[in-house]
C-alpha cells in the first residue's frame, strides 16, 4: 500500500478550562488514503470539530496541540512555517463548515468571494477566475451560475449557501476535503442532495473526504470507513459494514440503538443514560465511557484499554467488547 495521504499519530489537543487542562482530543491516530471516504461519528463534546481544526493546525487559545504528528502529502503540518501552512489550508486541505452562512461574508457577491480563493491559490487572471467560478457553481448544482455570481449570500437559500461553501472548498483544487457536519442545518431533501453531490464530486476528482457528523445515518450513507469518537478518543474504527453490522464497542452499539429509523417501529426509544465527561470535573481514570457503560468491569475504572484489532480493518478500545459475530446484547437501557 502506498503512503496514506493523511497520517495522524497520537494527536492530542488540550484546552484550558476553569484553571485546569482538558484533553479535547486525546492520542488520536488515523490515516486516510487518497480517494477514501472516512466518516467520523461523535456526540457534541466528543472532539470531532477540534479534530477538524487540529488537522489544519488552526487551534486557537485557550487550546493548543500538545503532542502528535499530522503528516499530509509528506508535509509535517504541525511544524510548517506560516507561509507554507497557508498554502495547505484551503489549498491541499479544505474545510466545509457546519454553518455555511458563516463561511461567506454578507457584504460581497458570491462571485467575488469564489474568485478571490481561486486567484489566491491558483495564480490565474481575473477573467479565468470568473470562468472557473461559473464552472464550479455549475458543478455544485446551482442553476443559472452566471447570474448567481452576482448574488449576495442573503439572496440564497440555506441549501444554496451550503453549495456555494462547497464550491469555495473545491476552488483551490484540494486533495482532502474535510466536511464538519455540513447538513445539520438543512432539510432532509437538501441533505440528500448535498450528500449525493459530495459523493459525486469525491468520486469524480478522486478526493479524500473526512465527513464529520453526530448522525450515524448520514455518515453511513456516504463513508466507506467509520471512526467513532468519544470524549476525545477513538473508541472504534473500521470498515463501515463491519462497524455497522458488528460493533464491538458498547458505545458504538448504544449509538446505533439510539438512532431513529424510518424502517422499523422501535418505540420506546433506547436511550443512553448519563452524560459525556464534563471538562470541569475531575478527569476520568481508565476508559472514558465506563461510567455510562452497561458492560463495565472493574478494570475499566483503572486502566485505559489498549487498541485491539482481531480482524483486519476493524479495531476498538474496550476491556469488555461485544461478541464478534452479529450484534451482541444491546448496550442501551430503556428509559424508565
Amino acid at each position: 500500500m502506498s503512503d496514506p495521504l493523511l497520517n495522524v499519530e497520537g494527536l492530542t489537543t488540550v484546552y484550558r478550562v476553569g484553571g485546569r487542562e482538558f484533553a479535547a482530543l486525546n492520542d488520536v491516530s488515523l490515516t486516510c488514503q487518497a480517494g477514501e471516504r472516512l466518516g467520523v461519528v461523535g456526540e457534541s463534546g466528543s472532539g470531532k470539530s477540534v479534530l477538524a481544526l487540529s488537522l489544519l493546525n488552526i487551534i486557537r487559545a485557550p487550546g493548543r496541540i500538545t503532542a502528535g504528528r499530522v503528516v499530509f502529502a509528506d508535509q509535517d503540518i504541525l511544524h510548517l512555517r506560516r507561509r507554507e501552512l497557508r498554502r495547505v489550508r484551503g489549498g491541499g486541505m479544505s474545510l466545509i463548515f457546519q454553518d455555511a452562512a458563516a463561511s461567506l461574508t454578507p457584504v460581497y457577491p458570491v462571485g467575488v468571494q469564489l474568485g478571490e480563493i481561486i486567484r489566491t491559490h491558483l495564480s490565474v487572471t481575473r477573467a479565468e477566475a470568473a470562468r472557473q467560478s461559473v464552472q464550479l457553481l455549475g458543478q455544485v448544482g446551482i442553476p443559472e451560475p452566471e447570474r448567481r455570481l452576482r448574488a449576495f449570500p442573503s439572496e440564497l437559500s440555506g441549501g444554496m449557501k451550503q453549495r456555494v461553501a462547497i464550491a469555495m472548498a473545491l476552488a483551490s483544487e484540494p486533495s482532502l476535503l474535510i466536511a464538519d457536519d455540513p447538513t445539520s442545518a438543512v432539510d432532509v431533501t437538501i441533505q440528500a442532495q448535498i450528500l449525493e453531490l459530495l459523493r459525486h464530486l469525491v468520486d469524480e476528482r478522486q478526493l479524500a473526504l473526512i465527513y464529520i457528523s453526530h448522525d450515524f445515518r448520514v455518515v453511513s450513507t456516504i463513508c466507506e470507513r467509520l471512526l467513532i469518537l468519544y470524549a476525545g478518543g477513538i473508541v472504534e474504527q473500521g470498515d463501515a459494514p463491519s462497524v455497522f453490522n458488528a460493533p464491538r464497542h458498547p458505545y458504538t452499539d448504544a449509538l446505533l440503538a439510539c438512532s431513529p429509523s424510518v424502517e422499523e417501529y422501535r418505540f420506546p426509544f433506547a436511550t443512553l443514560p448519563g452524560n459525556p465527561p464534563n471538562p470541569r470535573d475531575d478527569p476520568i481514570v481508565g476508559c472514558q465511557f465506563h461510567p455510562r457503560c452497561p458492560r463495565a468491569l472493574d478494570v475499566c475504572a483503572r486502566e485505559t484499554p489498549h487498541e485491539e484489532s482481531p480482524t483486519a480493518g476493524h479495531s476498538y478500545r474496550c476491556w469488555s467488547p461485544l461478541d464478534a459475530p452479529g450484534r451482541g446484547s444491546s448496550a442501551a437501557a430503556s428509559a424508565p
Binding site: 450515524f216 445515518r217 453511513s220 450513507t221
Partner: peptide
C-alpha cells in the same frame, strides 16, 4: 414519498447505490 426517500437510512448502503434525491428546492 420524496421526503421518505431522502431520509437517511440506518444501514450501510450498497457501494455505489445512488441516494434518492428530489430535484430543486
Amino acid at each position: 414519498q420524496a421526503l421518505l426517500r431522502s431520509t437517511p437510512r440506518l444501514r450501510v448502503t450498497a457501494e455505489d447505490g445512488e441516494l434518492h434525491t428530489i430535484k430543486g428546492e
